[in-house]
């Protein structure tokens, strides 16, 4: 059956932004260029230039039992090499962050292979083979309009802050102050890695996006922005899911959707 993914329901700008995130054919706007080594430093799993640690020999050298699934599924490059699995975690402010946890999870699943994501209310962790993780962190999660230096933060531990007011410089609150606002240049500098270990040199992740731009690219429904209740189609889908989950078990017929 020919199937065309719809990604996300809704007619609002927010719904469209979510679709843009999820659709692998849409290339997100590239806004900054953070060098590979700097991203590695912030992630804090290995020193820049250091070899990837491995947890098993390359797959080609391994003597594995016959398995037809292995023939069907092409392993990602990190798995082929046997690289270990590492993580990167993002926290997203409720104040018009470009991405938010559920959107992140769906986006990763649509766009990448070999990811394991964990979604919580304010943070989102991705686990992946280290080399592939670094690649997507840089090329997709940080360099594009998927990220804003002020409203998104790379936080491995102590993530608290997504639902708080911003600070006076417009940055999301961070108890560990992993990044600071440089008042001279107007840029955001990471002075610690994602778990709070100090870096030798600060990493410049660029200027925070202006408020108008954030409102334009955000994927968060807000009462003072685009409210969710404005989106008729989305509400119908949400209600449908709700009815299917609450009534469907007792009465698995089309009747439960009547009146939506």
């Amino acid at each position: 059956m020919a199937y065309k993914p719809q990604y996300y329901p809704g007619a609002t700008k927010i719904a469209q932004n979510r679709r843009n995130h999820m659709n692998p054919e849409v290339e997100l706007e590239k806004l900054r260029e953070i060098p590979d080594d700097e991203v590695v430093k912030i992630m804090g799993h290995r020193q820049p230039g250091e070899d990837y640690k491995t947890v098993h020999p390359p797959l080609e050298e391994m003597d594995l039992p016959e398995d037809y699934v292995r023939d069907l599924v092409e392993p990602i490059t990190g798995a082929k090499e046997g690289h270990r699995i590492r993580y990167i975690q993002f926290a997203d402010s409720m104040y018009y962050a470009p991405a938010q946890p559920y959107d992140r999870a769906r986006t990763y699943m649509w766009r990448f292979r070999g990811v394991d994501t964990g979604t919580l209310s304010g943070r989102q962790v991705i686990e992946m083979r280290e080399s592939n993780l670094e690649e997507i962190s840089k090329n997709f999660c940080i360099d594009t309009s998927f990220f804003d230096p002020a409203r998104n933060g790379m936080r491995g531990a102590t993530v608290h802050g997504h639902s708080l007011r911003l600070d006076e410089n417009g940055l999301m609150f961070d108890a560990l102050q992993r990044y600071v606002y440089d008042e001279k240049t107007g840029h955001v500098l990471y002075v610690k890695d994602q778990v709070g270990r100090p870096l030798d040199e600060p990493v410049d992740v660029g200027e925070p996006l202006p408020e108008e731009k954030l409102v334009e690219i955000t994927t968060i429904y807000r009462k003072d922005g685009v409210p969710m209740r404005d989106d008729k189609e989305l509400l119908t889908v949400v209600k449908k899911i709700h009815r299917a989950r609450t009534l469907g078990g007792f009465m698995p017929t089309e009747k439960i959707f009547e009146g939506l």
Partner: peptide, 14 residues
Amino acid sequence: IYYGPARGTPVNHP
């Protein structure tokens, strides 16, 4: 820092 791999490291919050 009270939690995570960097536990015990000073925060030095400005």
